[in-house]
Design a protein around this nucleic acid. Sequence first.
RNA 1: GGCGCGGUAGCUCAGCUGGUUAGAGCGCAUGAUUCAUAAUCAUGAGGUCGGCGGUUCAAGCCCGCCUCGCGCUACCA
Length: 704
Amino acid sequence: MSKRYLITSALPYANGALHLGHLAGAYLPADIYVRYLRLLGKDVVWVCGSDEHGAAITIRAKKEGISPQKIIDKYHELAKSTFERLGISFDYYHRTSAPLHHETSQDFFLKLYKKGGELEEREIGQYYDPEYDQFLADRFIVGTCPKCGHEEAYGDQCENCGSDLSPLELINPRSTLSGKAPQLKSTKHWYFKLDKHEAWLREWIATGTVDGEQQHDPKTWKRHVVGQCLSWLDGGLQPRSITRDLDWGIPVPLPEAKGKVLYVWFDAPIGYISSTRKWAEENGKDWELYWKDKDTTLIHFIGKDNIVFHCIVFPAMLKAYGEFNLPKNVPANQFLNFEGQKFSKSRGWGIEQHEYLEEFKDFPNKEDALRYALIRNMPENKDADFKWDEFTDFHDKELADNLGNFVNRVIVLTNKYYDGVVPATSQGLRAALAPVREIARKITGELDAFSFRSAVLALMELSSWGNTYLQDVSPWKLYKEDPDSQAVKDCMFISLQVVALLSLLAEPFIPFTAPKIRKLLNLPELQNGSLQEALDKLEAGQPLLPSGHKAGEPELLFAKIVDRKDDSRLQIVNRQKEKLQKVLETEKGEEREPIKPTIQYEDFAKLDLRTGAITAAESIPKADKLLKLTVSLGSEQRTVVAGIAKYFKPEELPGQPVVLVANLAPRKLRGIESQGMILMAENEKGELAFVSPKQGWGNGFIVR
RNA sequence: GGCGCGGUAGCUCAGCUGGUUAGAGCGCAUGAUUCAUAAUCAUGAGGUCGGCGGUUCAAGCCCGCCUCGCGCUACCA
């Protein structure tokens, strides 16, 4: 058993709001786990914070004409307050723009620099804007794409053709700052020699062993995590650049590195360390115990997009530095979809966390309703899907009907029969509560294994057991015959113990409801160690709620969404469903790309369009999207390479009539000369359709 | 194209190192019950475990091939 725990959740990038998928991925599971550890009385710190550097933020600032600071302030505040309102109980939410973080990161860099063997310097050619006296990050350079001729391609990628580019490949490069041609200058950068860490990383991932010491059991890691890491390692590791020529970020702490900052991926994970330091500073603790002591367990909660980073790159950094612990587990979640499709801000598909709170502001228990739905359908081992109908079902059938109703039954009966006072019992508690202890063990076991879906289902088993127990004993029947029946007292006594246990075990999952149950029982607020204490009592056969204790008045915990008497909550949910419906309608409606600028007839007349028919089609090796087609134009045959393999199989194409751009300059694609282009229509889903005359119409005729 | 993960009841998913009649929640059907938020409880019907082939006394679980989904990566429009 570990003495203390250090838990981290992925630092949100302060360049946009967070949606429900983020919550279900890295924050909610960590919150459940941390709340559970606290209830067990463990020494635990959970840190997070905003990731506020990187070129994406400076570019956006430029575009919007505001300072980067303004952007990060906005999203830092938004994330921080939204997390709080959802009960995400970080011990510290820091930010990477803070001075302490700059200091921590610079120290980290210097340590690696001075140690020797971990970093290497390289001179590379890079574009420079003399007018702004600045080296240009890839995204700050535009030019003509060497592959497709698109004139606004970025230095790292062409958005027209999707090619990955380097700035040096661009034809006629221009700086986005001054708009002028940049100078090519030589600049120095530092690289982290990730490659030299490959061997021990592989052993660590595969066996959990480092330097002959067993650090974790790889069987406790998720399969997709281990799989992706080993796959990445098999591909071989390369030194990674850890500096940039940029004025936004953490200055590289070397005299010769003026105008250079640490690359954002290098400083971001160090944010976990600074956040811990800041927390320690404010709470009179020693941060190093949490990072370096052998009796501390480190756990990273992340989404699957971050696996390689947290399982390979960051551990390598920590080991290179020395002294630091490696993570004991990285329980990465997969992605959450929304009503069958990916979250997409631009399409308006999905809902952001603060948006949910706003739209559900009149919905009682909105926080726990959301948390519960996300836990029940958490993407623990594969992508999951959030659906409003499920949200409603989980809330009504499990929270209200199962858990809420059980608690209500018990409180109502206790008030009705005994004026709210816990009756005396003759029952042997140990035996009577044996099945309950079993379920409690199951819940804690699942939590220990990061299986939050199963854990919350097991929590439902607890109230389910209570419902069944009440039904079996049917105290209302016995009471009619004998109001003084000992069997009724025993039954209510046992039931009350179960409710008391629920008030503890429910807290990690639904922290807004648990205190309400405490209040119904007239029990004091939960504190660190409460659960451990209760579990010990149960084990010893002692009651959690002694005879003579006066419980509170009944009050409903959950107002159902589908409710005959009040449809206000259903309306809130339905509004969300309607919004999605509208998105779909808009997309399949009249919205189309704008018409291009007017051209003259002469422009059109330059095109030589001809009817034709495909006579042969074959796939091209090592190209997923391309097919090699042979097109008959009547008098001649043309070879055409077309990017249609996603939608058409070679064998179904021969005989297909087409219209061909017959005078397009030939071009080599994957070594095959393409002598023309086939006209295709593309709809909003990216589906392709041939534009052509009907079958057998005739080949080689002019289209105009 | 390479690699990783996944394809199990109508829906959402569990199934540890292969071992007797494959599980849960919801939904569905029938019955019981009334303390309770038209809640609860019992019973039952539903599966060629993506497909084909193989290893084994025995395969959802191991091996090979194929297929579909997601992701990474390469190539490419």
